[in-house]
Design a protein around this nucleic acid. Structure first.
Length: 114
DNA sequence: ATTCTGACTTGGG
DNA sequence: CCCCAAGCCAGAA
């Protein structure tokens, strides 16, 4: 009664729920989102889920960056990585010349339990 | 059914 | 800081 397909679907919901809680002007890493979503170690699944988001979704996908504090380059050539930088700057996130974001300064730290 | 690939992370050299 | 290997999961070919 819990085929793999359903587990995957649930994971996506959990991922979107977590990403939706990231406030504007803050960022979280793929690994961090995975942990908060209850699927530690599956950072890759986070990126995979976000890539499946429909156009016009209200999920703030732009607030998720990699462990180096950089915007992960896309391979589909749609320029979503470029758009991500624009959206983040618009929210007040500073992106260094090397394309790096200071996680120490902008990383989202959800309150424990609240 | 098997193989490949992708918006990742971590640990070791 | 860079490069590499392993671990992980889902979907497309």
């Amino acid at each position: 009664m819990t085929p793999g397909g359903e587990r995957a679907r649930v994971s996506r919901s959990a991922i979107f729920a977590v990403v939706s809680r990231i406030p504007a002007g803050r960022v979280a890493t793929y690994g961090q989102v995975a942990r908060l979503a209850g699927i530690p170690g599956q950072a890759r699944l986070v990126g995979y889920a976000l890539s499946a988001l429909p156009e016009g979704s209200r999920v703030p996908w732009q607030r998720v960056v990699n462990a180096k504090g950089e915007i992960s380059p896309r391979s589909n050539g749609l320029g979503h990585d470029r758009l991500q930088a624009v959206l983040l700057r618009r929210e007040g996130v500073r992106i260094g010349r090397e394309g790096r974001i200071s996680l120490a300064a902008f990383r989202w730290r959800p309150r424990p339990r609240g």
